[in-house]
Design a protein around this nucleic acid. Structure first.
Lengths: 147, 147
DNA sequence: CTTCATGCAAAACATTTGCAGCTGG
DNA sequence: CCAGCTGCAAATGTTTTGCATGAAG
């Protein structure tokens, strides 16, 4: 698979065409986000990056994530309690299932919400450009645990 | 309409049956939440309550809202940037439309998501107990404004 | 070389907590 | 009375910002 067709390759060229630099730290952050199955938090990304670059700071991770957000290359899932979670592999709105116990987040396969979006637009007069659909509950593993 | 059938009346009895006190500040907070068309933030509630009770503190509002949340008598809409918003008139999950410019929040009328919820449950093995569906965009008023 | 990025520390916010004093029932 | 509430201030946790130094291109 040619580099330009991978998520990482795409992210890299988006950065380059904006004249942004590719530093080793950035590359490490991009790698993690590009195939982020786990919807990592900034802290989680940081934990992995410091292994290779011990002087890395949280601020740097925040700055890079913010940059990618502006480019639309990462999807941010906001949570007011606990930290935000990020998805760089599917940077477009899609449903999530969130375990309220262990905070695991997975992607279910669902029909698109375009019909619903159109209906909302018609009804409220809003120009709808984004949406968020989360389901909350207990993941299979947490259902087995006591309490 | 008998008191027990209003949202306010219902909230009051829920508090009483748990042995919680009805203070003047609490009553004021409950009133605002009971017919909260505007999905107010804690700050917004506070602003209104201080008019009548100038010594009121933000902490008190937070504490009362937390209490109502535990009782399931208020729905919390979490936002990591900006403050959380609360709905005491419909304290069960329902879709919202959020203006990304002025932060106005309105309730569209949509079919229930029970079919979707069941599908998610089946597919992921999660025990789904809650959901959140937000649409983001510009409200009619903000579409008219420049920029 | 000249931006732009990094990394530290401090600031900014929303929210929570500890605790002395107050008050509803 | 007295358990529960209030209000102040301090603490918390996440994210942002300022700025001097460093490195990518």
């Amino acid at each position: 698979m040619p580099d330009s067709e991978t998520r990482l390759g795409h992210m890299l060229s988006r950065l380059r065409e904006r004249g942004q630099r590719i530093t080793p730290q950035r590359l490490a952050i991009l790698r993690i986000l590009a195939d982020s199955e786990g919807h990592p938090s900034v802290e989680k990304i940081y934990d992995v990056v410091v292994r290779d670059f011990p002087t890395t700071s949280l601020a740097t991770v925040y700055k890079t994530v913010t940059l990618l957000k502006e480019l639309g290359e990462v999807l941010e899932l906001e949570f007011s309690q606990g930290s935000n979670r990020y998805d760089g592999s599917k940077p477009f709105p899609h449903p999530h299932v969130v375990c309220t116990r262990c905070r695991r987040i997975v992607d279910p396969d669902l029909e698109s919400l375009s019909a619903l979006t159109a209906q909302v637009s018609r009804q409220t007069g809003f120009k709808v450009v984004n949406h968020r659909l989360d389901f909350y509950g207990l993941c299979p593993q947490c259902q087995k645990e006591k309490r």
